[in-house]
Design a protein around this nucleic acid. Structure first.
Lengths: 215, 215
DNA sequence: CGTGGTGTTGATTACTTTCAAGATGTGTGG
DNA sequence: CCACACATCTTGAAAGTAATCAACACCACG
């Protein structure tokens, strides 16, 4: 059994203010905060009310069981938005996987941007529900295939895919152990479906084989 | 492996118009439609744009893999709302589990009720993410315990809990086979945690034991 | 060039599924 | 109201998949 305790590694430092998030008005503009690898963006139980846009890097959203088992419910890559939750407190943890730039968009009191948030929330809902199918009904190789397919798609559908997260993160996202994740990578490599360029970069050789695995 | 094909059993018939859904304005009022047990409310690929409130009965939301494996992502009981989705087409199937009354709330063109929908979408998102933890990181007995705990809570926290769905529905919700679900029910009964009043009604004898199982 | 963390591979164990048979429950028609 | 029939559920035995335990390899860092 793999176990964790949530740790606050360091505080973010503010940096420059690059590209404007297209979907939101100027009034919500905030500078970009930098979060070092492994640092906490928000914690379960903290007051919610902001949301966050990834400028660069990657973020994991997760929950813990009392005995330390961890389930990552989502990864967020550059350009993606996260952090909105029901109620006033966070139900999940958010951490930077690597050094990550995040634009914190604090909701002005009374500002009604629900018509902008709703599509994002619905997209997150659809994503979560699709992930339920993977965790509930697919085996190890299908889960990894679905993960790689999704990551490739979110990176523009290129052959080369970057995996900013560790095997342990992948395992905790797919409901598998790191050993099983590793074995499946090896199997996919031996089948010629993927090539392992290095630990964090893979090439999808047989895209259609991958797609076929996940239906 | 358990397999399904989605079937259209019958069409709904309109009936009386009881209680007003408190959260929504008069302009969205619609009569209650009755859906017989097993009938389809909407299908994957159909045009979305309405949402639905359960007046009585129960609904299952699910997805299918090409080979017939099914994952139920949610059950909806009396008073609950469902059907909002990202994009213009449904990604899921919705079926009445038993004879079910549903109020169909069609969105008037241009009507902006996103501020009413957002909390519902966020609640659904939180629910789905919590379910991810169950499917990804909990074993059979913990899954069933989490399910019973949730059902009890949604029915007012009473000792007696009604399970309107079959063992197969429960299995497809929890990512288990019907045999495993049945065995776990027996184990919980033998431990004195629950009593099986009949197939569709259980009594939670040791509420704290159930809670302890799911942390 | 060590050293600690991360990842891979192998052997064994454990849990859930699958296959199979029997029991229970429900609905229908006589 | 009872009897039959079909569907659903339960239980048992065997098989399969992933987890666990363990050792080793690789990589990044100081």
């Amino acid at each position: 059994m793999q176990a964790y305790t949530a740790s606050r590694i360091s505080l973010p430092s503010h940096s420059a203010q690059p590209s404007l998030p297209a979907a939101f008005g100027r009034e919500t503009q905030q500078p970009v905060s930098f979060f070092p690898a492994g640092s906490e963006i928000y914690a379960q139980g903290e007051k919610a009310g902001s949301f966050y846009q990834v400028e660069f890097g990657a973020v994991r959203i997760y929950r813990l069981l009392a005995d330390g088992r961890r389930q990552i419910s989502a990864f967020h890559l550059t350009g993606e938005t996260f952090g909105f939750e029901a109620g006033t407190t966070h139900h999940f943890f958010a951490e930077a996987i690597n050094g990550t730039g995040v634009r914190v968009l604090r909701l002005a009191a009374g500002a009604d941007i629900s018509h902008q948030l709703l599509p994002l929330a619905l997209k997150g809902l659809t994503r979560a529900q699709e992930h339920l199918l993977v965790l509930g009904r697919q085996n190890a190789i299908e889960r990894v295939a679905a993960f790689l397919f999704d990551m490739a798609e979110r990176q523009g559908g290129l052959r080369q895919v970057e995996l900013p997260m560790s095997r342990m993160d992948i395992g905790d996202y797919l409901g598998l152990t790191i050993e099983t994740v590793s074995r499946v990578f090896t199997r996919l490599k031996d089948k010629g479906v993927i090539r392992l360029l290095n630990l964090r970069n893979i090439e999808i050789v047989k895209h259609e084989a991958l797609q076929y695995m996940i239906e």
